[in-house]
Amino acid sequence: MKCKLQKIMDERGLSQLQVAKGASVTPGAVGRMYRNQLNRIDTTTVDKVTDYLGITDIREIFELVQEEA
């Protein structure tokens, strides 16, 4: 799974700190999503970030990719 938060934030000119504050989540959580360094997905964090960004379809922020064998 790939998180597309970096692309979304870059397109909107948002910093990690702006998103963290606006979504009421930790900067570290946003940073991990931004760098696509997710071992697990915290649905509460995803809900807050997507609400802040006005994203209503999970496919806008996550993309399912096939791992190479």
Rank of each mutant, 00 (worst) to 15 (best):
K2M: 12
C3S: 10
K4T: 03
K4L: 11
L5S: 03
L5C: 04
L5H: 12
L5V: 05
Q6T: 01
Q6M: 10
Q6L: 09
K7D: 15
K7W: 03
I8T: 01
I8V: 09
I8N: 02
M9C: 10
M9P: 02
D10A: 06
E11G: 00
E11Q: 09
G13H: 05
S15Q: 09
S15M: 07
Q16D: 02
Q16N: 11
L17R: 15
Q18G: 00
V19S: 04
V19D: 02
A20P: 11
K21E: 10
G22W: 03
G22P: 02
G22D: 05
G22T: 05
A23F: 00
A23G: 07
S24D: 15
S24C: 08
S24V: 10
V25M: 11
T26H: 07
T26Q: 06
T26W: 00
P27V: 11
P27G: 05
G28W: 04
G28K: 10
A29G: 04
V30S: 08
V30P: 11
G31V: 00
G31M: 02
G31Q: 13
R32V: 02
M33S: 00
M33N: 00
R35S: 12
R35P: 01
R35T: 07
R35C: 06
N36T: 05
N36L: 04
Q37F: 00
Q37S: 14
Q37K: 14
Q37I: 07
L38K: 04
L38I: 15
L38Q: 12
N39M: 11
N39L: 10
N39T: 07
R40H: 13
I41S: 01
D42E: 10
D42M: 00
D42T: 05
D42S: 10
T43D: 08
T43F: 13
T43R: 07
T43W: 11
T44S: 14
T45E: 05
V46W: 01
D47V: 00
D47P: 00
D47Y: 13
D47A: 13
K48Y: 02
K48F: 01
K48V: 09
K48Q: 14
V49C: 11
D51F: 01
D51Q: 15
D51I: 03
Y52S: 08
L53T: 11
G54W: 05
G54Y: 03
G54F: 06
G54Q: 04
I55R: 14
T56K: 15
T56F: 01
D57V: 05
D57I: 08
D57E: 13
D57Q: 10
I58N: 10
I58K: 13
I58M: 15
I58Q: 12
I58L: 13
R59P: 00
R59W: 01
R59T: 13
R59G: 06
E60A: 08
I61C: 05
I61D: 01
I61R: 04
I61Q: 03
F62M: 04
F62V: 07
F62W: 11
E63G: 01
E63L: 10
L64S: 12
L64Y: 08
L64D: 12
L64F: 04
V65I: 13
V65A: 00
Q66Y: 08
Q66D: 12
Q66N: 11
Q66M: 12
E67N: 09
E67F: 03
E67Q: 09
E67V: 15
E67K: 15
A69K: 14
